[in-house]
């Protein structure tokens, strides 16, 4: 197994979502099992995990898909070669679905220009802005009718965990403490 460190928000969100589904005890057992199977001490970013799998340093890496997308679309042939070495697995397809991170936005309660902020958020949800994120940063568009880039379509459909980001964000602190106890560095 290859993973980022427990200090990283992605690791914390993932553990927060497991916590919401399984409860504290089972989550700690899961995190401990994971940590005991780390091929190396957690370090680096998502891309580093992908590269490490491609190089054979470990068998499985936990990563967000958009980092893979950036490798696939890279101008550097070495990056594209890395992407060809690996395949993508979406876990929990028979259960609650795969954990999903979001690029979200909101308006602060005391924002001086709430109307302008809302207009901006609406713009982010427009077709053109969604295409911008999908093509610029290899992310899944959330607005229906906006086509995902070609390489995302090759990954196929998958069932996603529809747990609210608010919930796993609330679980964040407890998740981090569980990871500490489980020895996830």
């Amino acid at each position: 197994m290859l993973s980022r460190s427990s200090t990283n928000i992605y690791s914390q969100s993932l553990t927060g979502s497991v916590l919401a589904a399984l409860g504290e005890e089972a989550t700690e057992a899961w995190a401990r099992g994971l940590s005991e199977n780390f091929a190396r001490e957690p370090r680096g970013g998502d891309t580093d995990q992908i590269r490490a799998v491609a190089a054979g340093e470990g068998d499985i890496a936990i990563s967000n898909t958009y980092y893979l997308g950036n490798l696939i679309r890279s101008e550097n042939p070495e990056d594209r070669a890395v992407a060809e070495e690996i395949c993508v697995v979406f876990p929990n397809q028979d259960g609650r679905g795969t954990h999903v991170n979001i690029s979200g936005g909101g308006v602060a309660a005391n924002a001086p220009n709430p109307e302008a902020a809302k207009l901006f958020l609406e713009y982010l949800a427009s077709d053109s802005a969604q295409r911008y994120f999908a093509e610029g940063n290899s992310e899944y568009p959330v607005v229906e009718g906006v086509a995902a880039p070609e390489w995302i379509q090759t990954l196929g459909e998958f069932q996603e965990d529809d747990l609210s980001a608010e919930t796993f964000a609330q679980n964040n602190a407890e998740a981090l403490m569980i990871m500490d106890r489980a020895g996830w560095k």
């Binding site: 427990s6 200090t7 964040n172 602190a173 981090l176 403490m177």
Partner: peptide
């Protein structure tokens, strides 16, 4: 790093 994660991760 511990200060950072305690501040931002554990709030």
């Amino acid at each position: 790093t511990a200060i950072y994660r305690t501040w931002f991760g554990m709030g």
